[in-house]
């Protein structure tokens, strides 16, 4: 019961989705399965948040190191949750001016939007922007020409870095368009970059893509046939 039913469910729904790809009659079955899937995906956010709350409450009640930060996390969580769920500051939309609940939850001027604009946006954007610094330090310390492979990687990176800014154009625009009967401008850095992207990068990525597609197919098959059941865990509960 605890293991067989899940295997049957996984196999059936997967099979329906595969069949609906080939048989138009079953197309709507596939749509229904996907609609339910999307609802479950939304519930997964609640599950995630539930876990977060559980974990931080435990940290606070155990007075673990840094529990003060857990308290801040929970405060931020509940503040965002409450202003969002209650649609605080949302005014009715023009279409339904008498129903305040019909306004969009992320309306400009609402409290939830304030959290988005002034907390969420700067925090996530800055987090991402930090990568610029880390790339610089990685360039200095990690990108070493240790062997032939590394040299290939570095040289390509060099060319692409230059070729994708005006520096590449500026450095090599002295190369004539045509010389000794050949299209010499292919040697300009911006064109070399284009060639690398359209030839080597395309081929390398294509091989990786094909390999991964095969990997996805065989793993999916194993899941549907119940051969791979790691998602069920190894214990009974």
């Amino acid at each position: 019961m605890k293991r067989t039913v899940p295997l049957i469910i996984a196999g059936t729904v997967g099979f329906v989705l595969i069949v609906s790809y080939f048989i138009p009659y079953t197309e709507s079955w596939g749509e229904d399965a996907m609609t339910w899937f999307n609802i479950l995906a939304a519930i997964a956010f609640v599950l995630g948040a539930g876990n977060l709350v559980k974990m931080h409450l435990k940290k606070i009640s155990d007075q673990q190191a840094g529990w003060g930060y857990s308290a801040i996390t929970l405060a931020a969580f509940f503040f965002t949750l409450i202003v969002g769920m209650l649609k605080i500051g949302v005014t009715p939309s023009e279409k339904y001016p008498t129903n305040a609940w019909a306004g969009p939850y992320d309306q400009a001027g609402s409290a939830f939007r304030w959290v988005y604009d002034y907390l969420f946006l700067p925090l996530s954007a800055t987090m991402f922007a930090m990568l610029a610094f880390y790339i610089a330090s990685a360039a200095f310390r990690a990108f070493r020409a240790k062997n032939v492979e590394a040299i290939a990687l570095l040289t390509t990176a060099f060319i692409v870095l230059l070729g994708r800014t005006y520096a590449g154009v500026w450095l090599t625009d002295w190369i004539p368009e045509e010389s000794i009967g050949l299209e010499a401008d292919a040697l300009r850095l911006d064109n070399v970059t284009g060639t690398i992207m359209n030839t080597f990068n395309l081929a390398g990525m294509r091989a990786i893509t094909i390999g991964i597609a095969l990997g996805v197919a065989s793993t999916s098959l194993k899941v549907l046939l119940g051969v791979d059941r790691s998602y069920l865990g190894s214990t009974d509960d």
Partner: peptide, 29 residues
């Protein structure tokens, strides 16, 4: 790298089914 990662995971698990599916992928290639 890429598929090597799947292969490593199959190799480590040591399960016959995992190694078998790896061989199946090679036929695909």
């Amino acid at each position: 790298i890429g598929e090597e990662f799947f292969a490593a995971s199959a190799y480590l698990s040591g399960e016959a089914s995992q190694l078998g599916s790896l061989r199946g992928q090679d036929v695909g290639k």
